[in-house]
Simulated assay, not measured.
Amino acid sequence: MILETPRLTLREAGAEDAAFVLDLLNAPGFIQGIGDRGVRTLDEARGYIETRILSSYRDHGFGMWVVTPKGEGQAVGLCGLVRREILPHVDLGYAFLERYWGQGYAQEAAGAVLAHARGVFGLATVAAIVNPDNLASCRVLEKIGFRWVDIRQLEGWDQPSAYYCA
Results as ranks from 00 to 15, higher is better:
L3P: 06
L3K: 11
L3D: 07
L3C: 03
L8N: 09
R11A: 01
E12R: 15
G14I: 01
G14L: 05
A18T: 09
A19G: 05
F20T: 02
L24A: 06
G29Q: 14
I31C: 05
I31W: 00
G33I: 00
I34N: 03
D36K: 06
R37C: 05
V39I: 13
D43Y: 00
I53R: 06
L54G: 00
S56W: 06
G61D: 08
G61N: 10
W65K: 04
A75S: 13
V76C: 13
G80D: 08
G80F: 06
L81R: 05
R83E: 13
R84A: 11
H89I: 07
H89G: 05
V90D: 11
G93R: 09
G93E: 08
G93I: 00
G93T: 04
Y94Q: 08
A95K: 01
L97C: 07
E98Y: 02
R99Y: 02
Y100K: 05
G102W: 09
G104I: 12
G104Y: 10
G104L: 11
G104T: 10
A106F: 09
G111V: 05
H116W: 15
R118T: 06
V120I: 10
F121C: 06
F121M: 09
A124T: 12
T125C: 02
T125S: 05
N131Q: 09
L135Y: 01
E142R: 13
E142A: 08
I144D: 03
G145N: 02
F146D: 02
F146V: 02
E155R: 14
D158S: 14
S161A: 13
A162V: 02
Y164F: 15
Y164E: 06
C165N: 04
A166M: 02
